[in-house]
Design a protein around this nucleic acid. Structure first.
Lengths: 196, 196
DNA sequence: GTCTATATGAAGATAGAC
DNA sequence: GTCTATCTTCATATAGAC
């Protein structure tokens, strides 16, 4: 399965970040997870690091830029998972790599994933910002595979939602990570394979 | 399948609402869908109806109360679907009724469902407010059925997430409602049935 | 890179008149 | 049920010193 990399090629992994910026990103990620983006003020971020609002503004000119930086940082693992999946030769292998990585990441960061995936601000960002849309497109391409038609797209949409939404569901809050990971991967792969 | 109705029995459907309150609820629902709860101010709600903030405050003392009223209003259809599902005698029939209704509702109100399900404020409300938790519990009970163990709960969590998250996914944005509804029901039922 | 200080605006909320 | 007017608090954002 060749990797049809698209035109604009902004590697999230190679975006430069100073130490001060990284501190802000880490703190913001944590706060966004707990309070949502709209529910997190710059004051809260500044307090968490132990600096003033002005110091935060010195690193990022607006709150929007912080949200963007956090998203760029948080999506690096997905980018790497996509690289790995696209390097596989068969659809089955690509799916297994991508779903395995996605699920591992989602399970490891349950709270973060379910909080950020839910956030309307983040949702709009993922839809509007080109580098993110590109990631989502690559992801969709792997999930859909060679198939065409509404059902293949529906399966892709549902399996994606089932993963990112499922890990945060109260029903599985007490299931340990390893179990959740293996059972979810199993169910996801079978769902995508279908009875045909 | 008997309906083991729980102790506190606040029927959402029978909560009284004045005309003025209903206007607020409708407007708020619309704005919440577009901007999220945190992203919607009382000023926006007031403007949408054509009154002042003070008039809104006369109906609901706090923003929280508005969110609550909107949720109570919006969840009435789910309550009715659960009533119908629990009245069925077999698990299979109950599942078909509940999933059929849930999916129909989710597809009909794609934008609303995916926006509100995502909202952190709504999520917290559903988790904390007893009448809502009760609805979710009834829903979980039907989805899990007689089974026990982590996998049954995981399947329930995933199918739920797949439905409410799937209807709003960009990949199926151009799929018409009828197609989406029937294919999603089919896939959801098969996912829950599993290969065993 | 971080600070103090400050501007500006909008949010949630209340008092009291019509 | 709706209004005007007002209050408080907080958020985003900037200027300029250290």
């Amino acid at each position: 399965m060749a990797a049809p990399r698209t035109t604009t090629n902004a590697r999230l992994a190679s975006i430069p970040r100073t130490a001060a910026q990284l501190r802000i990103i880490i703190a913001a990620l944590d706060l966004f997870t707990e309070h949502g983006v709209s529910g997190t003020s710059l004051q809260m971020i500044a307090d968490a690091i132990g600096v003033t609002k002005a110091a935060v503004y010195h690193q990022y000119r607006t709150k929007e830029e912080i949200v963007l930086a956090v998203a760029e940082f948080g999506l690096v693992p997905l980018e790497m998972a996509l690289d790995a999946a696209e390097a596989e030769r068969s659809r089955a292998a690509a799916l297994e790599v991508l779903l395995g990585e996605m699920i591992a990441l989602a399970v490891e960061n349950r709270r973060m994933v379910s909080a950020l995936q839910r956030d309307p601000v983040v949702a709009r960002l993922l839809a509007d910002h080109a580098p993110f849309r590109e990631l989502m497109d690559r992801q969709d391409r792997v999930l859909i595979g060679g198939h065409e038609g509404a059902e293949a797209r529906l399966r892709a949409a549902m399996v994606w939602a089932a993963i990112v939404g499922g890990v945060g569901h109260p029903l599985v809050a007490d299931v340990d990570g390893a179990t959740l990971r293996s059972q979810m991967l199993d169910l996801a792969l079978r769902f995508l394979a279908g009875p045909d």
